[in-house]
């Protein structure tokens, strides 16, 4: 019984990882690729870790496995966030069929308003941007 559950968890992990890798290869721009790889990597390895914990039935192993899973849940989104932020900052292009980019709008507005922008004006600009957009559309 235990082996069956371990097998199913391993299968789930492998399939999710494979689909995530496929998504990373197929998606059109960096941000969509990042979405595919982050989610798949986290869930895939978590499934495999839980399978290992169940297979060994040992407390020390289980604690390590839970540690790895918790660590993944905390760090994978942070890593994705850092890469996406750096990419947007360095102007890695969005997909040509991207429909909206409010972060880019905010940055351009802040630059157009006054150069160099003092922090306060940047702040209000950033806070107001979504509302302005809503009125326009």
């Amino acid at each position: 019984m235990k082996d069956i559950i371990v097998s199913l968890l391993l299968w789930a992990g492998a399939i999710f990882t494979l689909l995530g890798a496929l998504g990373t290869l197929r998606m059109p721009d960096l941000y969509t690729r990042l979405q595919a790889s982050t989610k798949a990597g986290t869930l895939g390895v978590s499934c495999i870790m839980v399978a290992a914990a169940l297979h060994f039935m040992d407390l020390a192993v289980a604690v390590r496995a839970v540690l790895v899973v918790a660590f993944l849940f905390l760090t994978a989104p942070v890593a994705a966030h850092i890469i996406a932020r750096a990419a947007h900052f360095t102007r890695v292009p969005l997909w040509s069929r991207n429909i909206i980019d409010e972060l880019g709008d905010t940055r351009r507005n802040a630059k157009a308003a006054d150069a160099p922008p003092p922090p306060e004006s940047l702040v209000t600009e950033a806070g107001r941007a979504p509302d302005e957009r809503r009125e326009r559309s």
Binding site: Q35, T38, K39, F73, R85, T106, G127
Partner: peptide, 14 residues
């Protein structure tokens, strides 16, 4: 970031 179809990119300075 871990929920369907969304990924947080940046937080404004304020």
């Amino acid at each position: 970031t871990l929920t369907p179809g969304t990924l947080s990119i940046d937080v404004s300075r304020d």
